[in-house]
Design a protein around this nucleic acid. Structure first.
Length: 558
RNA sequence: GCGCUCGUAGCUCAAUGGAUAGAGCAUCUGGCUACGGACCAGAAGGUUGGGAGUUCGACUCUCUCCGAGCGCGCCA
């Protein structure tokens, strides 16, 4: 690890010092240094002068001029010039030498490039998927699998210890419906009203009948059926490459008396009251729309109380922060859960809930309405039968979870240009290809300190290094915003830059010295691309299957 | 009715309150005897749903209207 501060931090420090030496007061907030959208605006720009305009009582441009003078006197490394533009922006123009430092930093950090220790010491429990174990995972659920796993990776990249958890709702009404439906199939009888019509129920019933005969009672059948469904869910998760640290049983909460204990605690603290024979919690005291029932008049507990017990259990296991990923159709439950947890623990905002819009599935240009009752679900396994996990994951991670994603099965399952995963993987494969060709030609990469990186003068080369310089920050932003799509977009942008470099800056045909510099640039690119793809859960292949290869995996089915 | 979320190019989507709102696909025009062209370059495409406000500056924040999705059980 390099102990040298990134250029960005050096400039920020220099600006701070320049503001002081020019006799201005310090900024109220942190000094913002951003990468301008337009290259003509320099390598970095700052709006500090505009922010100082009001407190100082001077024109932004005049302030900028004063800061500029102080900055140029300070001899900041790599700083060539500071231009004042527009309403008072300061545009920092750097010598390309800063980019060579970037390359060295990337290579030195290797697999750790981009990681930091911002969240060190934090133990985060991330609960996601948690679909009821009453049937297979459906296609739209793939979004939460991909997003959850990627968010876990993002948080871990910032130094947190992240625990992936699946909450198994192995008790309650839905399970009873499952039991009754399965038992009806098992006995070859009519399904009960509102039963699960899915064909998989018939398959499970038949399998259990074949193995155990017709002698099982409903409870035994339910247990065995549950195991089969859960095993199926595990298989699907395995196929897409996600592994959970804990599968938490809701039933265990009851068996261990944790639900009763929470109710007792609420009662002791007088957070509950009785009405119409039921017990209610005063969640309105903590911002909820209305109070909620925790214990019904028939003596049974509500899902909400079970959830309180569950989240208390998570805290008891030592997690410092809880995060749940939910479909937006559950947004109405956020307040009541957080209100209760705040009442119990005193911590507001726990658990953090990431709400994601549901996926709209399209096939043949028409929306597929998913309904477990109607039995017309498209399962995740269906998707994975047609495309490999990389395609599925990348597609799910293309967009912000705030938007209602349209998952067009015709496009996703085709190898069309609208499938960006190949574009990205191609870039990585090309890097590997260069390495192979170099080896064949007997070219050995010289030690980095012996290589003249100043030969990397082409705009394509500079663009590549700029993108690498931006990576750690993009990663941190993606983690902070719980937004893996930001990283996906970095990857797409980076791949585009690499393809441009590959086209215009031939590596192996270059003069020996330049060849060496470009080999190292390719290596740094490989590191950046590989690190990012790893966090997204997408593989970085050494070579691509040939498009014209008939044995191509995931070939179009139509 | 109340509440939450979302409206950006023909389509799918980006853009910590910053400068001329960006990509991909589709359309059109160029470029390969290749470190694999699943590539590159260029053109065209916009009143950021409408209106008002906040300020040096708004896709972004506030209000309002329109449109879409979802939630408002002693279901989970």
């Amino acid at each position: 690890m390099s102990d040298k501060l990134p250029i960005r931090d050096q400039i920020i420090a220099a600006v701070g010092a320049a503001i002081a030496s020019a006799g201005f007061p310090a900024l109220a907030g942190p000094i913002v240094l951003e990468v301008p959208k337009q290259r003509e605006h320099g390598d970095f720009s700052s709006n500090a002068a505009m922010q100082l305009a009001k407190p100082v009582g001077a024109k932004p441009r005049d302030i900028a001029v004063a800061i500029r003078v102080a900055l140029l006197e300070a001899a900041v490394p790599h700083l060539a010039d500071v231009e004042i533009a527009g309403p008072g922006f300061m545009n920092f123009r750097l010598s390309p030498t800063w980019l060579y430092d970037v390359l060295e930093t990337v290579v030195a950090a290797g697999p750790n490039f981009g990681r930091n220790a911002e969240l060190a010491g934090r133990r985060i429990n991330l609960e996601f998927v948690s679909a009821n174990p009453t049937g297979p995972l459906h296609a739209g659920g793939g979004r939460w699998i991909a997003a959850g796993d990627a968010i876990a990776n993002l948080l871990a990249s910032q130094g947190a210890e992240v625990h992936r958890e699946y909450y198994l709702n192995d008790t309650g009404n839905q399970l009873n419906t499952f039991r009754d439906s399965l038992f009806a199939r098992y006995q070859r009888q009519e399904l009960p009203e509102d039963g699960y019509v899915g064909e998989y129920m018939v398959e499970i019933a038949d399998a259990l009948r074949a193995e155990h005969g017709a002698s099982l009672d409903a409870a035994q059948l339910c247990e065995l059926g549950l195991r089969i469904v859960i095993a199926g869910i595990r298989d699907d998760l395995e196929r897409i490459g996600v592994r959970f640290d804990t599968w938490f049983s809701e039933r265990s909460l009851h068996e261990n008396g944790e639900v009763d204990a929470v109710l007792q605690l609420l009662t002791d603290r007088e957070l509950v009251f009785e009405l119409d024979g039921a017990v209610w919690i005063r969640t309105t005291d903590f911002g909820d729309q209305r109070d909620r029932v925790v214990k019904k008049s028939d003596g049974s507990t509500t899902y909400l109380l079970n959830d309180y017990a569950y989240h208390c259990n998570k805290f008891a296991r030592g997690f410092t922060h809880l995060i749940n990923i939910w479909g937006s159709d559950h947004h109405g439950q956020v307040k009541s859960l957080q209100a209760g947890i705040e009442a119990i623990t005193g911590q507001p905002g726990e658990p953090e809930i990431i709400l994601g819009q549901l996926v709209k599935l399209l096939r043949g240009g028409e929306e597929i309405k998913i309904s477990k009752r109607a039995g017309n679900i498209v399962t995740l396994a269906d998707i994975l039968d047609e495309v490999d996990a990389d395609v599925a994951r990348m597609t799910f991670l293309l967009q912000s979870v705030d938007t209602r994603q349209t998952f067009d099965l015709d496009i996703v399952t085709s190898q069309s240009m609208e499938n960006p995963v190949y574009y990205v993987q191609m870039a990585h494969a090309r890097i590997a290809s260069i390495g192979r060709k170099a080896a064949e030609a007997g070219v050995v990469r010289a030690p980095l300190p012996a290589v003249n990186l100043a030969l990397l003068e082409h705009p394509r080369e500079h663009e590549l290094l700029r993108a690498l310089a931006q990576y750690p920050e993009t990663l941190a932003e993606a983690a902070a915003a719980r937004a893996p799509h930001k990283l996906t977009h970095w990857v797409l942008d980076f791949a585009a830059r690499f393809h441009g470099f590959y086209r215009d800056c031939r590596v192996l045909d270059a003069e020996p010295e330049l060849l060496q510099a470009r080999l190292w640039l390719a290596e740094a690119s490989r590191i950046g691309l590989s690190n990012a793809l790893t966090l997204l859960g997408v593989s970085a292949p050494e070579e691509m299957a040939r498009l014209d290869d008939e044995s191509l995996e995931g070939a179009p089915t139509q």
